[in-house]
């Protein structure tokens, strides 16, 4: 599956910074872990931060990511779509697998108006988990579309608020129109084991895609 320049030991590519590398200078004092990234997407208030917090070894951190929005609506017919830059809050956490490998979980806002924002965050992600609140299915269409178009392995996880799901998984699958191969499951964002199992479903998807 490796593509592009040959990876160096430890899984790092020296691009894009190679052209400026100075020999013998700038050796890291400590070898960093290889970061593997999963993206957790979904509408506002659907439980992304809760899910990250349930399993992350650190309290979820928040940073502001600059995103480029392409204005929707009337401007769609224009040849020069109006682009604006917006700042959104992005929450994330991590899990140290071992000293050489670390899993990062990035939660991204998923409303449709952020349709073009994800590239900066998603670039290089091994997979995605789309969290769904069945009372507000509309909020996750953009995330589902995004992962499908970018061919990023993903699963749809219905967050069981108060242990209840208002629609069956078949109904959710039908409403979201996800392809057969995309797992749709129920989980509880507050439960560490439940979040772990949802992430494992995504990783199994990624593994299958990798030919492993």
């Amino acid at each position: 599956m490796a593509c592009g320049p040959s990876p160096t030991p430890g899984g790092y590519s020296v691009t894009p910074t190679e052209p400026l590398a100075r020999p013998a200078a700038g050796q890291a004092a400590v070898r960093p872990p290889l970061p593997v990234k999963l993206v957790i997407a979904g509408g506002f208030g659907v439980g992304k931060t809760t899910a990250v917090g349930s399993i992350s070894e650190i309290e979820p951190l928040t940073t502001e990511a600059a995103i480029t929005e392409v204005a929707a609506g009337v401007d769609d017919l224009s040849h020069t779509p109006r682009k604006t830059t917006t700042t959104v809050a992005m929450d994330f956490g991590c899990i140290t697998i071992d000293p050489t490998l670390k899993l990062y979980l990035f939660g991204t806002p998923g409303q449709e108006r952020f349709g073009f924002m994800w590239d900066d965050i998603v670039e290089g992600a091994v997979g995605g988990l789309v969290i769904v609140d069945t009372r507000r299915l509309d909020d996750c269409y953009a995330a589902v579309d995004y992962f499908e178009h970018r061919q990023i392995p993903f699963a749809v996880a219905v967050n069981a608020f108060d242990g209840k799901v208002e629609h069956s998984l078949d109904e959710v699958r039908w409403a979201l129109d996800v392809s057969e191969g995309v797992p749709v499951l129920v989980f509880d964002a507050r439960e560490r084991g439940s979040v772990r199992d949802a992430l494992l479903v995504v990783l199994e998807q990624a593994l299958a895609r990798s030919g492993g």
Binding site: M1, A2, C3, G4, Y12, S13, V14, P16, T17, S210
Partner: peptide, 11 residues
């Protein structure tokens, strides 16, 4: 250290 996506996606 920019991660190599070929490696992070490796089985």
């Amino acid at each position: 250290h920019v991660p190599d996506s070929g490696v992070t996606h490796d089985a």
